[in-house]
């Protein structure tokens, strides 16, 4: 069956991130001047405004900063997933991502819970970084 959920709109700003995801790598920009690791990608560092950066690959581990459990599907594609968990995960390197927590029931999720990336290959070009409990 064709994938029936929304897909990311890849553009010049987020292309490197989604290409990284296709290779199961979480890639972020690190400021060449102050070392701040930022997300989403931007032309200059939000901390020091320097435009030079290098790309780093995250370890893919972090913790749940916060989460919400959807009991209503606002899009048909998510109907079968109810109830499902949307979370903000804070990676070890610092950036925070909006994502889903998978691999456990919604009742088992908590703030500060350690998690690790769980790749979901949804099309030949797109893999989504979801997260599961770190055991």
């Amino acid at each position: 069956m064709a994938y029936n959920k929304p897909l990311p709109r890849v553009n010049g700003d987020n292309q490197e991130f989604w290409e990284g995801c296709r290779n199961h790598e979480l890639k972020f920009q690190q400021c060449a001047s102050c070392g701040h690791i930022r997300f989403p990608a931007s032309l200059v560092c939000p901390k020091c405004l320097c435009s030079d950066f290098q790309s780093i690959v995250s370890t893919g581990t972090g913790k749940v900063y916060t989460y919400a459990v959807y009991h209503v599907a606002f899009h048909q594609g998510f109907l079968e997933d109810l109830p499902y968990v949307v979370a903000v995960v804070e990676l070890q390197e610092g950036p925070r991502l909006l994502t889903n927590i998978v691999g456990c029931s919604p009742e088992e999720v908590s703030c500060e819970m350690p998690v690790t990336v769980a790749w979901e290959n949804v099309t030949p070009d797109i893999s989504l970084p979801m997260f599961k409990p770190l055991i």
Binding site: R9, T66, F74, H75, Y84, V86, A87, L128
Partner: peptide, 17 residues
């Protein structure tokens, strides 16, 4: 926007977080 990729929509979801 692209939050929809993870099933995150509208204002209720944001305030729930």
């Amino acid at each position: 926007g692209d939050d929809a990729v993870f099933g995150h929509f509208g204002a209720t979801g944001g305030y729930a977080l």
